[in-house]
Simulated assay, not measured.
Amino acid sequence: MSSEKINIIIFVTITTVLILLLGFILILVIYLYQQRKLIHTQSITELELSHEKSLTTTQLEIQENLFRHISQEIHDNVGLTLSLVKLRLNTLDFSQMSVMKEQVFSSVNLLGESIENLRDISRSLNADIINNYGLIQAIHKEITRIEELSNINITLAIDGEPIYMDSQKELIIFRIIQESCNNILKHSGAKSASVNLKYTKQELVLSIQDGGKGFSMSDFSEKNYSSGAGIRNMTARSKMIRATMLVSSAPSKGTTLKFTIPI
C-alpha cells in the first residue's frame, strides 16, 4: 500500500474520531445545559411554592388577628353597652313611671351608640374605605373614630406631596396604622400619639409615635411582643409591601415605629 493511501486513511480516521468527539462533546454540553435548566426550573418552582406557602401563612395570621380585633372591638365597645341596656331594661319598675321613662330613654340612646359603633367598626374594616376615601382621608376618619372612643389625642402630619399607590398597598399601610393605634390604646398607657407620613419620589416614610410607658429594647424581641403588641402582624404586613420596619423604645419614653415603604 502506498504511503499516500496510508496518509489518506490516517486523515479520514483522525477526522472521523474528531467529528465523533465533537459530537459527543456537543451532546454532553446539551445534556448538561438541559440538566442545569431543569434544576434551575425546579429551584424556581420550589421558591415560588415556598413563597406562596409563606404568603398564605402570613395572610392567615393577619386574618386571624383581624378576627381577633373584630371580636375585641365588639366586646369592648358594643357588648358592654348592650349589657348595660339589658340591665336597665331588666330593672324597670312600672310603679315608678318617671324613673322607668328615664331608663327607657337612656337605653334607647345606648342602643343608638351601639349601632353607630358597629357602623364605625364595619367602615374601618371594609377594604372599600381606601377606594372610597383614599389613604389620607381614611386615616383621618380612623383617627377621629379612635379619639371618639377613647381619651387619647392623635395628631396626623403629612410631609411632602402625597403620591397615589396601588389600592391594595394603601390598604396594607392603613391596616398597619390601625394595628399600631390599637397597640397604643391597649398597651402604651399614652394620652397622646402622632402619625407622620413623609412622601418623597422614591419612598413613603411612616412614623407612629406614642408618649406611653415604652419598654426596654434589651428585652425586646419579635417573639416576646408578637402576641401582645402585634409586632409580628405588622412585620408580616411590611414584608408584603417590601417595607422595612424599625422599633425604638425606652421605659417611660414611649415607642416609635418607623416604616420605610418603596413607592
Rank of each mutant, 00 (worst) to 15 (best):
M1G: 15
L18T: 11
G189R: 05
L60V: 08
I9L: 15
L185S: 01
I208T: 01
E73K: 05
E222T: 12
Q178Y: 02
E170A: 06
N117R: 12
N131F: 12
S192F: 10
S3G: 06
I176L: 08
T81R: 10
T45S: 11
R88P: 00
N183S: 14
L22S: 09
R123P: 00
K37D: 10
E142R: 04
S98I: 10
I30F: 10
I208V: 10
I10H: 05
V85T: 05
L32D: 11
Y33I: 05
S71N: 15
K191Q: 11
I6F: 15
A193K: 01
L197R: 04
R145Y: 08
A157P: 00
V247T: 08
Q209Y: 02
K186H: 15
I261M: 06
Q178S: 06
S83L: 10
I8V: 13
F220H: 08
E222D: 08
L32W: 12
Q59V: 03
D166A: 12
I208R: 00
L32P: 04
T260G: 02
G23T: 10
A236F: 03
S180G: 01
M1T: 12
N126Y: 07
L92H: 08
S150L: 09
I27K: 15
E52C: 03
I74K: 03
G214H: 06
L89V: 15
S194F: 04
S3H: 12
K198G: 05
Q35W: 11
N224K: 13
T235N: 07
M240R: 05
S122L: 14
Y33V: 07
K201A: 14
E147V: 07
R88S: 15
L49I: 12
M165K: 06
T56D: 02
A243K: 01
H51P: 00
H75F: 09
I6T: 12
N132C: 04
S207I: 11
N183Y: 04
L80R: 13
D159S: 04
D120A: 13
V205W: 02
T41V: 06
I139C: 04
I172L: 13
